[in-house]
Nucleic acid binder design. Structure first.
Lengths: 232, 232
DNA sequence: AATTGTGAATTCCTTCACAGCC
DNA sequence: GGCTGTGAAGGAATTCACAATT
């Protein structure tokens, strides 16, 4: 493995590759190649290879990759060996929805506790069985339950204070849903999912469409790629 | 305005700038500069200026920008003049949570309808008052209500079919929460918020942290920037 | 004096193209 | 012959640094 720094883009794609491999495995495929993956899933074969080689040489020249081997490697790289316990701060709509969410593999991610400052919510239990604690108990519960990831689901005004609290409790990985730029301490990994930005970006697009119209929007054409299946 | 193609990164930052300006306006500031914004909100002043000049010359040399003027311009660029009506497909946890979500300005975005294929959910009304229709009525409701944005909140397996349905109904801007890569037709703007990728990226980070430890993680140090306030 | 707007420089990311290997 | 791994090329995004302007 190289000491080069690896970009967030690469890491995100590893998740995508793993997902593709899971699909292949589910349909009984045991061997694949960067080219065949690229075609099936609309990726670029060179990029797949380059991304993988940051972490090792997982393929065989002239042959390709073993689906099961590569899955194992990617899982390991992504730290999916052990269960990650998640604490969600803010037991409103979004927090509750995430606690009940079935979108991620329960083998790897488990929402272990909800927290809220509002006493009327404390003591509630989500449909999936997650208890709502008072925010003042955050640190002890994090310790007791060994929570390693925090999710911020509070209003923008409270988000920075919550991040500080999370950080203070020793949780080093945080996903933020509040529509604010937060300042994380060095060593803390903060990812933000900003709904407002996403909707405004869609809005921007729609505003362009209406005016521009007609004569082609070359900007939005999918780029040609060798790996795409071309109409004959 | 230039004909150059403008990157998604720039558009996303325009949302951030607008948010910053709203904060400034709320605290009574009437004039600002790229430098002062950069300092306050941890941005890069050259980037602010460059982003803005894709759309016009909004500043005055030697003086800076009028907060109210720039807000108006950015709102207009982002298409925030009119109300955008949103239809959410999938009235499960996430769909319902988004329908009830209070994070975005109701002046610009309004969730107008929920859709589900499950008859047991049809006829329900979200806490915020949004009705759940059957998915088969998607197109007529979109027409009647003038819905211009779709949000996909269904499981991964159904997401592509839902995107096709949305597209077929003439909705050109879509936000996808399902953890799959979707293929959108040319001319349709698709944004994805992939929870699984985000969590796996946090997991990757934690996996590195535990092994690496000690002797500094230069990778995670915030980069030096002229606009940051330096400790004296 | 201060700040914008912008070419040039830099850094980062993606893709090409081919040597090396099976 | 086919596919990986990778140096080099190409393309994008960011940042610098300064001429232009008030």
């Amino acid at each position: 493995m190289k000491t080069e720094k690896i970009s967030e883009f690469t890491i995100n794609r590893l998740s995508i590759y793993l997902r593709c491999l899971n699909l292949l495995a589910a349909s009984g495929v045991t061997t694949t190649s960067s080219q065949s993956m690229a075609q099936q899933f609309q990726l670029n074969s060179a990029q797949i290879r380059k991304d993988l080689t940051y972490f090792g040489e997982f393929g065989v020249r002239g042959v390709g990759y073993s689906v099961s081997e590569l899955r194992k490697h990617l899982s390991q790289i992504l730290g999916l060996g052990e269960l990650h316990k998640i604490g969600i701060i803010g037991a409103g709509n979004l927090g509750m929805a995430l606690a009940n969410y079935r979108g991620f593999d329960p083998k790897y991610f488990q929402v272990t506790a909800l927290f809220d400052k509002d006493l009327s919510r404390v003591g509630e239990i989500s449909r999936s069985g997650v208890f709502v604690y008072h925010i003042k108990d955050f640190k002890p519960i994090v310790m007791r339950e060994n929570i390693t990831m925090g999710v911020i689901c509070v209003p923008a005004e409270e988000a920075q204070a919550v991040l500080d609290l999370i950080t203070d409790a020793g949780v080093m990985a945080v996903l933020n849903f509040a529509p604010v730029q937060l300042n994380a301490e060095t060593g803390v990994k903060l990812k933000s999912m900003d709904l407002a930005i996403s909707f405004e970006s869609l809005s921007y697009f729609l505003a362009r469409q209406e005016s521009g119209s007609a004569e082609g929007q070359p900007k939005f054409l999918r780029p040609y790629s060798k790996d795409k299946i071309l109409p004959e």
